[in-house]
Simulated scan of single mutants.
Amino acid sequence: MIDEQHRSIRCETAAETQACAQQLAKELGAGDVVILEGPLGAGKTTFTQGLARGLDVQGRVTSPTFQIAREHHPNGAGPTLIHVDAYRLLEAGEDPLDALESLDLITEMDRAVVVAEWGGGMMEQLAESYIHVIIDRTTAVDETPESEARIISWRRVDAARSRG
């Protein structure tokens, strides 16, 4: 499991971002929740594609924007990957727990890794702890405007402690 330690890596390309996520996937299992934070175009879906490759799931990973959640079943005995666009759930103005229940995510947790783009403030309620991933494109672009680099930071957060 991922420990409380904060980790960070600079990825120069989309392929490096996917490789970073593929490595992180080796530390994930059914019941894990991954919350992706970053502005539009930061690479959240690219990161999820790497997680999918690391989890060895079926199907092409694309942005879940218009379907809210996409489910990718494992090729072997591993967990299913559920890729969620939580922004659309928050945008609808529903109570976050009602929205999660409508997706049936809570009942799927024992067999899935849930990855949520824009999931902060909602997805933390799914598990006792979650992996918070921040994808920073601003720092690299401020240094070199034509840069494609992103700085990816992650840590496991105790959800009960963060709800305080």
Rank of each mutant, 00 (worst) to 15 (best):
M1P: 11
I2Y: 00
D3K: 06
D3E: 10
E4S: 14
H6M: 08
R7Q: 15
R7C: 10
R7P: 01
R10S: 13
R10G: 05
R10L: 14
E12I: 10
A14L: 12
A14G: 05
A14T: 12
A15Q: 13
E16V: 06
T17V: 09
C20H: 13
L24G: 12
A25Q: 07
A25E: 11
E27L: 15
E27S: 14
V33M: 04
I35A: 09
P39L: 06
P39Q: 11
A42C: 02
G43D: 06
K44L: 08
T45V: 07
T46R: 04
G50M: 12
L51A: 07
A52G: 15
R53A: 15
G54R: 02
L55N: 12
L55P: 10
D56P: 07
Q58E: 15
R60Q: 14
S63K: 06
I68H: 06
I68D: 10
I68T: 11
A69Q: 12
A69E: 12
R70Y: 02
H73W: 08
P74D: 09
P74T: 10
P74G: 09
G76L: 10
A77N: 13
G78H: 02
T80L: 03
V84G: 01
D85S: 00
D85P: 00
A86G: 07
A86F: 02
R88M: 09
R88S: 13
L90G: 15
L90M: 14
A92V: 02
E94I: 05
D95S: 13
P96S: 08
P96G: 05
P96C: 05
L97P: 02
L97C: 09
D98I: 12
L100Y: 01
E101L: 10
L103Y: 04
D104Q: 12
E108N: 07
E108A: 15
R111V: 07
R111K: 14
W118M: 07
G119E: 03
G120E: 12
G121W: 09
M122C: 10
M122W: 03
M123I: 14
E124Q: 14
Q125F: 04
A127Y: 04
E128V: 07
H132G: 09
I134E: 13
D136Y: 06
D136W: 10
T138D: 11
T138N: 10
A140N: 04
A140R: 03
V141G: 01
D142R: 15
E143W: 03
E146T: 14
S147A: 14
E148L: 13
I151L: 12
I151G: 08
S153K: 10
W154I: 04
R155Y: 09
V157H: 02
V157D: 04
V157E: 11
D158S: 12
A159Y: 03
A159T: 11
A160I: 14
A160K: 15
A160T: 15
R161P: 00
